[in-house]
Nucleic acid binder design. Structure first.
Length: 608
RNA sequence: GCCUCUGUAGUUCAAUGGAUAGAACGAAAGUUUCCUAAACUUUAAAUUUGGGUUCGAUUCCCAGCGGAGGUACCA
């Protein structure tokens, strides 16, 4: 049983004994004592004043006296205003540390037969362009969330929905046909996703030039409204866009030539994506393709129409009326019978539900889709998906650059592959400047630089509360000081170094016993206390759907350890018992740092 | 217009309704006979405004101001 739970129960008993009142254990406010005060746990006594009918100080003192008398773990207490600070005795802390040490899968909850099956959708790329910084945040959050949910005892299925059909991919295909001269990833040496992305840009360039040429001569003299109308007319006339539309129609009809081109080009893109995913360290258990789900969506919508959930307008378009839920009407099928985003999501949901006994569905999608998922939840519920009502839209904020929003038009999009290259290169430059890495093989150096560069990137993104928009500065993002991934990795590498040295000295830190009378400092107790919170941190991150909790915990632990490391000697302590204790503490800080960063998908190096 | 999210040091981020609002970067000043100085120690510096709820509000509620996103045939 955890020390916190025991404390809470004892407080409940104290209230019963002192004031003859029953309190709900959940209402007992037990928190970590702030650094400025002496003690480890603090009981807030304000809620008990009605029962005691005494001043806050008196009440706190009475409870303190009772606890000290009846609880051997409590060695002393002090009262400041309405706060009762409790000091836990050293042997208790030693026992907590040895418990952590002997627990191989410390902090992780094993799934059972009754554990919920959680499906997490993330990444969701379009096949017409490579992944960018926004996708990086999505992928890192999704993968970390999956790890955290699994660690908290859920059965997790990671899934991806690839947006592989539609006008956007036709644009790339058309541009490639027209201006590609048969270019392939092999012939150009380019990653497939980048190659396709280039033709998407190429299409846009020609298209805009074409639209411009179709504008009336007096365009500049028109007022704003007329300009808009003229532009819309020009866009509608554009032969290029019409060709792209024709291609989409032929695709839908299953034209073999178009399908073949589509398949070839998509395969190039997937090969490119796989490389990027691998580097990012993300993976999926099951991938769905929109080309395979959009027809299912139409079917499901028609079914809903028959059952009277939806209605048809005169022009043939199908709508859902969500007025009862306080929302608008929402389009589900266009008047020409083609599907929209919502239709596809319904179809994907249908297939997923067939494939897995889903209890909870989590969609990792940007916050610009908040409204979409609000509607999707209602629609899925109406259509009879049992998890529809409580689907979770893990909504994350946009990533902005110091110059403002990323815009593909203005070429300010940060490409995922370029970014990763830059991070690793930056790690190398910084390490060279510091004269690190001497005496290591090139292979080792490359591996460490990969770990550090990627760690810097991942940590920088994951430490921020997912819901918030964040600013990412590519130039200054690799800061190896402060609240950063490399700082945590550095701490881990130091710990490994200490343990190697201990091992070289023939110190066996296993099979040891602690005497109860060794003197350990408050700093060390504070570290043990942090270690003991690991499981709660995981559970909190899982219930809040927020990986940043884990990131900030790891930083806190690394920081505390660095301060301790600076102030105390680990290996040079002459007293055997204390030396072994410190080594055990060190070893377990390393263990938890590795587990914690592992949840975020961040590797830690043995040396750096 | 309407709906949703958001507002904390110069900057980037923290803070289950709890104590004197924490860190980091940047700024100023220090610490290498010492297990990795990518470290450590000091100093200066912040809750958008006005109400409400209560023992207590950065947190919850209402209103104003600022920022972001969405808003019916784009995904």
């Amino acid at each position: 049983m955890k020390i916190e739970e025991i404390m809470v129960n004892m407080v409940v008993q104290a209230i019963k004994a002192l004031y003859n009142q029953d309190v709900d254990p959940a209402s007992v406010q037990l928190q970590k004592t702030k650094k400025e005060f002496q003690g480890h746990f603090t009981v807030v006594v304000f809620p008990f004043l009605k029962m005691s009918r005494k001043s806050p100080e008196m009440t706190a003192s009475e409870i303190g006296v009772w606890l000290q008398k009846n609880m051997p773990a409590v060695s002393s207490y002090n009262v400041i205003k309405g706060f009762l600070n409790i000091v836990i005795s050293i042997p208790v802390w030693l026992r907590i540390l040895t418990d952590i040490n002997s627990d191989k899968s410390y902090g992780f909850t094993e799934p059972t037969d009754s554990s919920p099956l959680v499906m997490i959708e993330y990444s969701s790329p379009n096949t017409n362009k490579p992944l960018h910084l926004g996708h990086v945040r999505n992928n890192l959050l999704g993968a970390a969330l999956a790890n955290i949910m699994a660690a908290s005892g859920a059965k997790v299925v990671k899934t991806n929905i690839v947006n592989d059909r539609g006008i956007h991919i036709c644009k790339s295909m058309l541009a490639w046909q027209k201006w590609g001269n048969g270019a392939t990833p092999e012939s150009t040496g380019k990653k497939g996703d980048h190659l396709i992305g280039d033709y998407y840009v190429e299409f846009d360039k020609h298209y805009r030039a074409e639209v411009k040429s179709l504008l009336p001569e007096n365009y500049d003299e028109l007022d704003e409204k007329a300009q808009e109308a003229a532009k819309a007319a020009a866009e509608k006339q554009s032969p290029l866009m019409q060709e792209a539309h024709d291609m989409l129609v032929r695709w839908e009809q299953g034209d073999p030539e178009v399908r073949q081109l589509w398949k070839t080009m998509n395969d190039w893109v997937y090969a490119g994506f796989d490389e990027t995913y691998k580097r990012l360290g993300v993976s999926f258990d099951k991938i769905y393709y929109e080309s395979e789900t959009y027809l299912e969506g139409k079917e499901k919508v028609m079914e809903g129409l028959e059952k009277g959930f939806f209605f048809k307008k005169e022009d043939g378009s199908v709508w859902a009326d969500l007025a009862a839920e306080g929302l608008d009407q929402k389009l589900l099928l266009r008047s020409d019978g083609t599907s929209v985003y919502m239709t596809q999501d319904i179809g994907t949901a249908k297939l997923r539900f067939q494939d897995y006994p889903i209890d909870k569905m989590i969609y990792v999608v940007g916050n610009e889709q908040n409204y979409h998922f609000q509607v999707l939840s209602i629609l899925l519920d109406k259509l009879g998906f049992k998890w529809g009502k409580d689907l979770v839209h893990f909504s994350y904020g946009m990533v902005e650059l110091p110059e403002g929003k990323m815009k593909s038009r203005e070429g300010t999009v940060v490409d995922a592959d370029d970014l990763m290259d830059e991070m690793v290169e930056n790690a190398r430059v910084t390490s060279d400047e510091l004269g690190k890495l001497n005496g290591l093989s090139q292979e080792e150096i490359d591996d460490i630089m990969r770990i550090v560069g990627m760690g810097a990137l991942k940590y920088f993104i994951l430490k921020v509360d997912a819901r918030k928009n964040m600013t990412f500065n590519p130039k200054e993002s690799i800061d190896f000081n402060g609240n950063t991934g490399p700082f945590i990795q550095y701490t881990y590498a130091r710990i490994r170094s200490i343990l190697r040295k201990a091992s070289d000295d023939g110190i066996n830190i296993h099979d040891r016993l602690f005497s109860d009378d060794i003197m350990i400092s408050e700093k060390e107790i504070s570290i043990i206390q942090l270690l003991s919170e690991f499981k709660d941190v995981i559970l909190q991150a899982a219930t809040d759907y927020n990986p940043s909790v884990i990131a900030n915990y790891c930083y806190e632990l690394a920081k505390e350890f660095n301060q301790f490391y600076h102030d105390f000697s680990v290996l040079r302590e002459p007293e055997q018992g204390l030396k072994l204790f410190r080594l055990m503490l060190t070893e377990n800080v390393g263990k938890i740092l590795k587990l914690g960063t592992g949840l975020l998908g961040i590797e830690v190096p043995e040396r750096m």
